[in-house]
Nucleic acid binder design. Structure first.
Lengths: 395, 395
DNA sequence: CTGTTAGCGCTTTCAA
DNA sequence: TTGAAAGCGCTAACAG
């Protein structure tokens, strides 16, 4: 043991090295910063030896303090439980490595208050920029970020009141791709399932794109269902409604379709369906019923498909369907999802795979430019998704 | 816009605040550090106002530099893709929050070289301690960590040459629990599937515990199979061998059992099985065959179960079984796994759930004590796992 | 109660 | 080529 007395072996400082090498701090600093050409080979050798002997490692904090930049960037992640986030993170890490940054990863665990705290913390550590994938932050929270503050780039979603570069999936194109796939395969009664929008722009965009994509199709019907994953009671109820809809499609005779009881809801809230085909919003809570008066234009049984807006929703649905219909539910019920988690293949669900790695990489590149002083207007980088067809929609 | 000329709006410093409040830096510092009792209400008010006006936020780097401690701790994670790691992380975050630390999360993406780099980086940022969940680090790598260096605590696994506190699952008890469960349910031909041991102690421990648990049972047979997830070719071959074994068990008539061709392998390497019942190690590559000469003591068909050493292995097996036997493979093949990923319920596999949150929380507590100067010998904290029985072993 | 002073470990003029 | 000295933003004696 090199430290027999348990004396805290204070790390060597630049002063120690200078003394050990019999020179001044300046030369050590020069050596550290690669200004080797100005050092005599002899001195350089002594410095090298001293550093080695003392196991010296420069203190980044001090360097940062002096230089005014510390090569730290913050990465605020709303939910590391979501494989999407981890994948994006890999891209971020790779880019940081390439560009010489150290990412400080902050995990807000889906809590807005956490996001606020972390953003604040990152700020006090004087990170040079932040990559934000947040649930939703209030105006006040992001005062230090964005224009006038430290550079920021948004991932996957906009944040109200924050003008900044953004990179993410081309939601509109992706959802169109998916919807057309479903229509092509003959599904004409599509239920789009999404978490409460809150401040997450991508959820809104996807839902809007779905609505638009299906709106033009005369025969098809689209519905939006909001699933509140965090609330067990609400969840159960909403799932029951979906079950009802799915079952009805199987039971109903040709020429008959479903719709929801009419009624005007002020906004889309959990458990509420929006019946796109008729442009009306209906509260589904009371009950769902088959209605022969609303027969579809074409004849034949409606073919139902579930369209999950992201992986967490898809997981919830898959679990539920599995419990309700057994292991072969895929053969009976079509499920498609944006996001392609690792269990998707095995569950046999069709997905839109996001270019997660590139999203993360690109985010850092954007940030790097801003840190370097680029002043252009906020830019968006929308990357395309890829459709992966699996058993669940192959009928 | 507050910054019309795009002048970098240099953040206010303590000096600025002092000037603004018409006082000295010391008072500001005192205010910042909560020494409110020594400040006259009047001065205090002026300071508050100045801070507010300047939107001042103390620079943590500078504080850290001065105080010699920065409340930063490093968390080195081998693989964020593994849900286990993310769960542990949540515990770490919660504890950090409670104890006033800021965790710097480093993701090594299963690359030893990355682990080395990050450990080095953390060191230069002068973190006060590190929590290490690494694949395997060479001696040289961890010189700055452990005794004589910054305090460290290991999660889930020991690291050769690093004497430090450790917290993780009680592998022996957990594997015993699982094995007994399988035996109770009548499975008597159990295949333990594990990734290459490398330097990961928990893998070794689990395998050893399995071996021990099954060794005492006269009727049961245990085998160890090493699955190399990263190597597609090796993977395929090993899976084929497992298939063969599983199939054979179904085809074989009562009183007949399987064993592997005899032969001595120097160590357990991918694709190699260890036949526990006979204490011999056999290279399974050539072929697997039924051998009536080695009939089991009891009569009746062997009931096969697969025992995955962790979630990544379980996922690989589940995917494979799903592809090979269809969606209802659980009814045919028993699969049990250490780790309880979110898809486990839905896949219907029995698992040992680890107390991940506590593991993370405890790790930080250990570290905190070390940082506070506790000098006792290295401690181990082994937490119990919980058996979750699902369809796959319920026959 | 309040301010002055001397650094923390490092970089960077500016002279030598 | 080299080094002395002046800070970066902050805290902690030590005086008033």
């Amino acid at each position: 043991m090199t430290n027999p007395h348990n004396v805290a072996p204070r790390r060597a400082t630049i002063t120690d090295v200078a003394r050990e090498a019999g020179t001044g701090k300046t030369s050590i600093s020069r050596y550290l910063n690669g200004e080797l050409s100005v050092l005599s080979p002899e001195l350089r050798a002594r410095i090298e030896a001293a550093i080695e002997r003392l196991d010296y490692q420069p203190n980044q904090m001090a360097r940062g303090l002096k230089r005014g930049r510390n090569r730290l960037i913050g990465m605020l992640v709303a939910d590391l439980t979501n494989p999407y986030s981890v994948e994006v993170l890999q891209g971020v890490e790779a880019a940081c490595q390439a560009l010489g940054y150290m990412p400080l990863i902050c995990h807000a665990a889906n809590e807005v208050e956490m996001e606020r705290r972390y953003l604040q913390l990152l700020t006090t550590y004087r990170v040079e920029g932040v990559i934000v994938n947040a649930l939703g932050v209030r105006e006040e929270t992001l005062r230090p970020v964005g224009e006038g503050g430290i550079p920021a780039v948004l991932v996957d979603r906009m944040v109200d009141g924050l003008v900044a570069d953004m990179v993410g999936l081309d939601n509109t194109a992706a959802v169109e791709l998916a919807t057309h796939h479903l229509l092509e395969r003959g599904f004409d009664d599509i239920w789009f399932v999404v978490q409460p929008f809150e401040r997450v722009s991508s959820r809104r965009l996807r839902e809007a794109a779905f609505r638009a994509a299906i709106g033009g199709q005369a025969r098809a019907r689209g519905h939006t269902v909001v699933l509140e994953l965090g609330d067990a009671a609400a969840l159960e109820q909403t799932l029951a409604e979906l079950d009802h809809a799915v079952d009805a499609a199987f039971e109903v005779s040709p020429g008959v379709t479903l719709h929801l009881a009419a009624g005007a809801a002020p906004d889309v809230t959990p458990g509420v369906s929006v019946d796109l085909a008729h442009g009306t919003r209906s509260d589904a809570n009371p009950s769902l019923r088959a209605d022969t008066a609303q027969a579809a234009a074409g004849a034949g049984t409606r073919r139902v498909a579930l369209f999950a807006a992201n992986a967490p929703v898809a997981l919830c649905l898959a679990r539920h369907l599995n419990a309700r219909h057994g292991a072969r539910w895929q053969e009976r019920i079509a499920l498609l999802s944006v996001d392609d988690p690792e269990w998707a293949e095995f569950a046999g669900i069709t997905t839109i795979r996001q270019p997660t790695y590139q999203i993360g990489y690109r985010a850092v590149e954007f940030l790097h430019e801003r840190i370097d002083g680029v002043e252009s207007a906020a830019r968006d980088c929308l990357l395309p998704g890829e459709l992966i067809v699996r058993a669940s929609t192959s009928r």
